[in-house]
Amino acid sequence: MEIKDLGRSLLRKRGTTVFLIIIASVVFVSILEPIFLRWSNIRSIMIGMSSDGLMTIAMTLVLVLGGIDLSVGSVAALSCVITGGLYLSGMDIWLAVLIALAVGVLVGLFDGIMIGKLGLPPFIVTLGMMSLARGGAYIFTQGSPLSLSGAPESFRFIGAGYIADVPVFFLIFIVLAAIFDFLMKHATVFRSIFYIGSNEKAAKLSGINVSKVKIWVYIVSALLATLAGILSLSRFNVATPSLGSGAETRAISAAVIGGATMTGGVGSVLGGVLGVILLNIVNSALIMLNVSVYWQDFVSGFILILAVTIDFLSHRKKS
């Protein structure tokens, strides 16, 4: 009976559903195309998902809070070109990284104050920030990518290096995902994010400092996006102002596939990570199976709507 209960409670979790879909896709694709399971392919899937993965962690946090952060992709671009530009102007690369992180904190602080203190709608504030940061990145580079020749090996290592044949970028993503998943499940301050997302008024009336929590969540979100930008710079060795365009929609899709809702109070980082993995595996599979790349967006959209519909129907049946 206990095993049956365990099974049932696992099935009720969105993560399990996504995990099963991942397994099924992998099995399906590797039967059609065994190359899919080669380590080199798996490695490239890993590195390909890491930047989106960091932003999905960020998006999961803000969605659970009952907000949204549309600026993740362009904040990544901004931090990427700031780091690259400052390095090219002769600054030490690590100092440039620190400055980019500081800019990330400022961006998050700005979003957080506008949303948490002034009470402006998160969609509008971060939509504005999305353009501000993207515009800033273009202004900073005058529109053309900056090639980062001769960057120190230590910097190249974090985005393009390997440990035991696993991409460091991916390891950073997975470790952060594990940390945030743990914190979201257990940390006292992170529980406030769920309370606020579930019922902001009730959270306030429970003595939770709602604006403070909102401000730091947006700071964390901007910092994760900043990190994605810095690591992408290290990976590509080029500071591109168009980096991460559309990343916000992919992050929202992944977080929602993983169980987060647009109304807040629900979601898990683990679910979001599984969502990212699913979307990237399917994209890679499409390439492997020689499907035109134009199908990628189409299929991602289909998966998103399918996941949400299944979830909606299964919950409706219960109540």
Partner: peptide, 18 residues
């Protein structure tokens, strides 16, 4: 003003004094 509807009974009870 009171309930965290999606959340568990336990989370609702501990909300004011986590």
């Amino acid at each position: 003003l009171g309930l965290f509807v999606e959340m568990s009974i336990e989370n609702n009870i501990i909300a004011a004094d986590t």
